Computed example of a mutant assay.
Amino acid sequence: MFTGIIETIGLVKEIVKENDNLHIKIQSNITNELKIDQSVAHNGICLTVIAINGNTYTVTAINETVKKTNISQLLPGENINLERAMKLGDRLDGHIVQGHVDQTGKCINIKEDNGSWIFTFEYDKNLNNITIEKGSITIDGTSLTVVDSKLNEFSVAIIPYTFEHTNFKNYKKGTIVNLEFDVIGKYVKRIQDLRS
Rank of each mutant, 00 (worst) to 15 (best):
E7R: 13
I9W: 01
K13L: 10
V16M: 11
V16L: 13
E18W: 01
L22P: 08
H23R: 13
H23V: 03
I30A: 03
K35V: 10
H42F: 13
H42V: 02
I45G: 07
I45S: 05
V49H: 07
I50A: 03
N55P: 01
T58M: 06
T60E: 14
I62A: 08
E64M: 06
E64A: 13
V66C: 13
K67D: 03
K67L: 08
I71L: 07
S72T: 00
L74Y: 13
G77T: 07
R84S: 10
A85M: 11
R91N: 12
R91V: 07
H95Y: 04
Q98E: 05
H100I: 09
D102K: 08
Q103P: 00
T104D: 02
K106F: 00
C107H: 08
N109Q: 14
S116P: 07
F119N: 06
T120W: 08
E122P: 01
Y123M: 09
Y123D: 05
D124A: 13
D124L: 12
K125R: 13
N129D: 04
T131V: 14
I132Y: 11
T138C: 14
I139C: 05
D140H: 06
T142C: 10
T142F: 00
S143M: 06
L144M: 12
V147I: 15
S149D: 01
K150S: 09
L151V: 09
F154A: 05
S155D: 01
S155E: 02
V156W: 03
V156L: 10
Y161A: 08
Y161E: 12
T162C: 10
H165M: 10
I176W: 01
E180V: 01
F181R: 07
D182T: 01
V188F: 04
V188L: 12
K189T: 13
R190T: 14
I191F: 14
I191P: 00
D193E: 14
D193T: 13
